[in-house]
Write a protein that binds this DNA or RNA. Structure first.
Length: 233
DNA sequence: ACCCAGGGTCATA
DNA sequence: TATGACCATGGG
């Protein structure tokens, strides 16, 4: 790491994924994600929030709830244009309507939550990645927050944070960064359940931190990551 | 007016 | 394998 001066000493013992986690947790506290009432709602939200601000997703989900369409049978059965109209606020509504229906068909064909819950981690992940419209991040959102499986969700904020901290190379592949961060938590000796909890909070904290302090443009003032903050001068 | 947002697919080289 | 175009609404 290339920081120097008094602050660097303070930062040094936190300049690891675990140190970052602890700094963020100390600052923001537990987040208890995902903001949803059911696992299936998590899955819908994960697809709707692709490259989209969460506030817009909330409107779309409110529409679905109001229309009684927040269930896989309903989503899979309705007319695609009608669905697109309901989720319009979330953007990319034609694409996402198709993706939601592809996902719901897959979900129902395989017996829904109860049956899928019996699948092993890796086969479940591979199956999710095979669903049209479900990429690595969406799959890991679903795995972690709907199925409580120990996968680290790597989003744009996560990459930006750890690249700017100098812990990983710019342009690191999704899977490589995920492996790096998962390994960092494993090395702390947490058991499976605690890893899930840690991954849950870690991703949420990264998002909250990015949204409240370290957006691309604004400078970061009083930041819990000190000189390690991606937006620090 | 411009940038950004809790990505993924598809065509192209 | 690695870019680039495309998808589209809403807030700052």
């Amino acid at each position: 790491m290339v920081v120097a001066g008094p602050v660097a000493v303070v930062v040094a013992d936190r300049l690891s994924p675990i140190g970052v986690f602890e700094a963020l947790f100390d600052e923001y506290g537990p987040q208890h994600w995902w903001p949803a009432e059911t696992p299936f709602e998590v899955m819908v939200g994960a697809i709707l929030t692709q490259n989209t601000a969460w506030t817009n997703v909330e409107r779309a989900i409110a529409n679905l709830r109001r229309c009684g369409a927040l269930e896989p049978e309903a989503l899979a059965g309705i007319d695609r244009r009608t669905l697109a109209d309901w989720i319009r606020p979330a953007g990319y509504f034609n694409v996402k309507a198709r993706r939601l229906q592809h996902f719901c068909r897959w979900y129902l064909d395989r017996g829904g939550y109860a049956v899928l819950s019996s699948w092993q981690d890796e086969p479940l992940r591979a199956a999710l990645l095979g669903v049209h419209g479900v990429g690595p991040e969406t799959a890991d959102d679903i795995l972690l927050y709907a199925f409580e499986r120990p996968f680290f969700v790597v989003d744009a904020y996560t990459r930006r944070l750890f690249v700017r901290l100098g812990l990983v190379d710019e342009g690191i592949a999704y899977e490589a960064l995920r492996a790096f961060l998962e390994q960092a938590v494993v090395e702390k000796g947490r058991d499976r359940e605690r890893r899930v909890e840690c991954f849950n909070e870690f991703h949420a904290l990264i998002v909250v931190h990015a949204k409240t302090r370290c957006r691309p443009r604004p400078r970061c003032g009083d930041c819990p990551l000190k000189s390690g903050c991606p937006s620090a001068p």
